[in-house]
Design a protein around this nucleic acid. Structure first.
Lengths: 116, 116
DNA sequence: GCTAAATGGAACGGTTCCGAAACGAATTCG
DNA sequence: CGAATTCGTTTCGGAACCGTTCCATTTAGC
């Protein structure tokens, strides 16, 4: 576990990374979409619409729409589950992995630059 | 400066805090509004619409609307500058300070819980 | 004084998102 | 088999946000 963050450092970190995301027009994902994206790329598969909706505490259509948008951006892909064809399995993509990796780089860089 | 974050830790931190914000319906601020709020509460005053627009790299009306929304939520207040009455000075509020403080607490808590 | 520049805001049209409700397809259960 | 359940999606009306453009007010320059 890293060393404890002080309040001013925690807020500065959140501010700096958020500012980077706002300025980088490519990443205009909402908080909800961000949570969906990171859950898919950090938690163990398989991921379903229903599972994501429960994990985030939002309705199913909200997840469907978030996946629509992120699918259009190429960040995730959807596939019918052959075993139970009611289910849709959400899968990772190369572009999504790169976007997540880039976010990680931003957080690390901004964290490294935090003042004492 | 805190110890270096590893990529998996940086992404987990961003995911966990974002998830807290999504689940806490009160904080349905967009990334842009979040950046405005934190800039106001972290950077030195005075803050103007034009200055914020430049700092965030967005248009003036976007800042005006963000301030409208956040003013409605009681997170900031606006005042005409008596010295130059063209300017509007954005000021902090008690509710805004509390909201920012709560965000800091979330970031610190999620950071503290990061796995090795 | 009078024009020119600067500032914040309002109006407009378009896009996106929301939750609730309804729906089609697939599966399970009686 | 037939009814009930599950799952993801679509539809609907409403709300929020976007950038562009234009405007009222105020200040600065001549």
């Amino acid at each position: 576990m890293p060393a404890e963050l002080r309040p001013s450092q925690a807020l500065r970190l959140w501010h700096d990374v958020t500012l980077d995301l706002v300025r980088d027009t490519e990443h205009d994902l909402s908080a909800r979409q961000m949570a969906v994206l990171l859950t898919i790329y950090l938690d163990l598969p398989p991921h379903t619409v229903r599972g994501l909706a429960e994990k985030l505490g939002v309705t199913k259509p909200a997840i469907t729409r978030a996946l629509d948008t992120m699918g259009r951006l190429g960040l995730v892909s959807r596939h019918r589950d052959p075993a139970d064809r009611r289910n849709v399995v959400i899968q990772r993509t190369l572009a999504g992995a790169l976007a997540v990796e880039r976010l990680g780089d931003i957080v690390i860089a901004r964290h490294r630059e935090l003042p004492l």
